[in-house]
Structures are given as C-alpha cells and as structure tokens.
Computed example of a mutant assay.
Amino acid sequence: MSKSIKEIQEEIVDEFSIFDDWMQRYEYMIELGKTMPLVDEKYKIEENLIKGCQSKVWVHAELENDKLIFTADSDAIITKGIVAILIRAFSNQHPADIIEADTQFIDEIGLKEHLSPTRANGLVSMIKQLKMYAVAYQTQLN
C-alpha cells in the first residue's frame, strides 16, 4: 500500500532534521531536485509554468488509476529542489487527499524562513498550483 501524504511529509521532516545547518539542507534539496521525475519537454509550455515564481518552474499533472502523478522541472537548482519536495509529498495521491493536505511540514523543515521573499512567494504559488490541479481532476472524478 502506498504511503499517505502525511507519512511522506513526516519522512521529509525527519530527513531534514538530520542536517545541522542550512547549507547542508540546501545541498540536500539540490540532490532531491536531481532525482525528481522530470516533466517531458513537450509539457514545458506556457500553461504549465507556475505564475509568481522568479525562476521558471513547469509542473505537469496526469491522472493514473484515480491518482495524480506530477512531474516538474525548473531552470534554477534550488527551486528544482523545492518543487521536488512538494512533488514527493503530493504525487501518486488521490486528488481529494491533495486538496485536504496540510502543508505544515514546509514550516517544520524551516523552508519558508530560509528562502528569499521571492522564493517563498514561489513556494506558495507552487503549492497553490498543485492543489488547483487536484481540484480540476477531482471535478472530473465526480
């Protein structure tokens, strides 16, 4: 059985708690960005760009077996790491669960407070976009 969003978020919080300083956490985020499922080049289109991000971030969603599968990419390595964390938490989950999901884990790993204001805004925009995809697909399921 696949893990719940909450279980995945707790794993992420645990992983980040291993690191003593933010340089290590940034390095870890960059590594996560390198391992994330990348969006297919054909989906790197205007409508898949996250609005409100300083760097370019593309997110694509597809419904498979009533679960949303996200792929993404970014032209900035830190941003790619941020979106990788979100995708890990929300991909392969039911749209209703994504809609209801709490994003408290972002605060628990201290991400928002260690991002520049523009990156923090981008993070909020990414979360909004993932939830908007979930709402759109949930509507199709009903």
Rank of each mutant, 00 (worst) to 15 (best):
Lys3Asp: 12
Lys3His: 12
Ser4Met: 04
Lys6Phe: 13
Glu7Thr: 12
Val13His: 08
Asp14Ile: 06
Ile18Cys: 10
Ile18Met: 13
Phe19His: 08
Asp20Trp: 08
Met23Glu: 15
Met23Pro: 08
Gln24Glu: 15
Arg25Lys: 15
Tyr26Ala: 11
Met29Gly: 07
Glu31Tyr: 14
Glu31Asn: 15
Glu31His: 13
Leu32Met: 14
Lys34Pro: 00
Met36Pro: 03
Glu41His: 10
Ile45Ser: 14
Glu47Arg: 08
Leu49Asp: 08
Leu49Glu: 15
Ile50Glu: 02
Ile50Lys: 05
Lys51Thr: 14
Gly52Trp: 01
Cys53Gln: 05
Gln54Cys: 05
Val57Pro: 15
Trp58Ser: 01
Trp58Ala: 01
His60Asn: 10
Leu63Thr: 00
Leu63Glu: 12
Glu64Ala: 15
Ile69Arg: 12
Phe70Glu: 07
Asp73Phe: 02
Ser74Asn: 01
Ile78Gly: 04
Ile78Pro: 09
Thr79Arg: 07
Lys80Pro: 08
Gly81Val: 10
Ile82Arg: 04
Val83Gly: 03
Val83Phe: 06
Ala84Ile: 04
Ile85Asp: 06
Ile85Lys: 06
Arg88Lys: 15
Ala89Leu: 08
Phe90Asp: 01
Ser91Gly: 05
Asn92Val: 06
Asn92Cys: 14
Glu100Ser: 15
Glu100His: 13
Asp102Gln: 05
Thr103Ile: 06
Ile106Asp: 02
Ile106Thr: 08
Glu108Tyr: 08
Gly110Phe: 01
Gly110Ser: 03
Leu111Pro: 04
Lys112Asp: 07
His114Tyr: 01
Leu115Gly: 02
Arg119Asn: 03
Arg119Ala: 02
Ser125Lys: 03
Ser125Leu: 01
Met126Cys: 02
Leu130Thr: 02
Leu130Pro: 02
Tyr133Gln: 00
Tyr133Lys: 00
Ala134Ser: 01
Val135Ile: 14
Val135Glu: 14
Ala136Thr: 13
Gln138His: 07
Gln140Trp: 06
Asn142Met: 11
